[in-house]
Computed example of a mutant assay.
Amino acid sequence: MIAIIGAGVSGLSCAWWLQRQGMAVRVFEAAERVGGKVSTLAADALCEQGPNMLLLDEELQQWLAELGLSPLWPEQGSGLRHVLRSGRYRPLPAGPWQLLAGSFLSWPAKWALLRGLLRPGSPKEAEASLAEFCRRRFGQEVLDKLLDPLAGGVFAGDPEELALEETLPRLARAAAQPLPLWRGLWRQRTARARMCTLQGGLQQLPQRLARDLDVRLGAPVTALRRDGEGWRLRTREGWTRAERVVLALPADAAAELLHPLAPEMADICRRIPYAPLAVVSTLLDGEAMDRPLPGYGALHPSGEGALTLGHLTVSNIYP
């Protein structure tokens, strides 16, 4: 038996695929529900208490179809985004050519953006941080007005520390090619993932995966021990033996189990930072709003000093 500790989306997905390969799998979850950070609240409207969407590529779409889950696509015209600048929301241009034609950037920044799009890339450039790549190729203004709000609002992170390959993989792949950057991006246009949610909310995914699995809820694993070639796991019901163990846990929780076995690895896990992020859902009467913001929502650059990283106008995106 393979023991999966943690019934979030990662643990459940791992268990589902292992079981499909014919392996015996059991999932242990400390909470009384599956899903981890993925949780949908049914109030007067569906509210996501964690992630709000999936980025659906062809492979993921095929898997959802196999699971019998239906994507819910955004409403037409919901893609308009805004950025907070000098205390006011301003529409964010949809692409590089709109940036060059509009007034979002100054003329020097437009020239820097155009030069950056025309310059060929190199494999080493793709290894840079988000901020380093943007500053070298497009300049500080593009970093401050575009990449900084993106890094904060989407990744809740510092662009100086975020890796380009991890945050914007399409851009990284284009930057690694000995072609003008715009051409590398154009070649990948058909591979772009599409934003969606699921009918009934994202919690449908972990609930559907758990339906086919042996999941033990309210069963925290409090200790791991080596047992010959296998493992022993201590739960409230006593010790359970497993041939293999997968830790699908937050890093600090994994560190507690790993410390007696691999203290150096546990120390590395403890040093992994997590963004102190809260998701707040606010339900308003749309007719009572004087000037509702159209489109998807807005991002807040760090220099604006805003309370939040941004907001999604979810009812504009999905019915």
Rank of each mutant, 00 (worst) to 15 (best):
R137H: 02
R137P: 09
R137V: 06
R137T: 06
R137S: 04
F138R: 01
F138G: 01
F138I: 00
F138Q: 02
F138M: 01
F138T: 00
G139N: 03
G139K: 02
G139S: 01
Q140Y: 00
Q140E: 02
Q140T: 00
Q140P: 00
E141F: 07
E141G: 11
E141C: 10
V142Q: 05
L143Q: 06
L143N: 04
L143P: 05
L143M: 03
D144H: 02
D144L: 05
D144C: 03
D144W: 00
K145C: 15
L146C: 07
L146F: 10
L146W: 08
L146V: 12
L146M: 11
L146A: 04
L146H: 08
L146T: 07
L147Q: 04
L147K: 07
L147W: 08
L147S: 03
D148C: 07
P149S: 03
P149M: 06
P149D: 06
P149F: 05
L150E: 01
L150M: 10
A151I: 11
G152T: 00
G152Y: 02
G152N: 01
G152C: 01
G152V: 01
G152F: 01
G153F: 04
G153D: 05
G153M: 03
V154Q: 03
V154G: 02
V154F: 06
F155M: 00
F155Q: 00
A156C: 07
A156R: 01
A156D: 02
A156M: 02
G157P: 09
G157Y: 03
G157M: 02
D158G: 14
D158F: 14
D158W: 11
D158S: 15
P159K: 10
E160A: 15
E160F: 13
E160P: 07
E160R: 15
E160G: 14
E161F: 13
E161S: 12
E161N: 14
L162N: 13
L162K: 13
L162H: 14
A163Q: 15
A163I: 09
A163L: 15
L164D: 12
L164M: 12
L164G: 14
L164A: 13
L164C: 14
L164N: 12
E165Q: 10
E165S: 10
E165T: 08
E166H: 09
T167Q: 13
T167E: 08
L168V: 09
L168D: 03
L168G: 05
P169G: 04
R170S: 07
R170C: 05
L171C: 10
A172D: 06
A172G: 09
A172F: 06
A172Q: 07
R173I: 04
R173Q: 10
R173L: 12
R173D: 05
A174G: 10
A174Y: 08
A174S: 09
A174E: 11
A175R: 13
A175L: 10
A175V: 12
A175I: 13
A175Q: 10
A175F: 11
A176I: 09
A176N: 07
A176C: 05
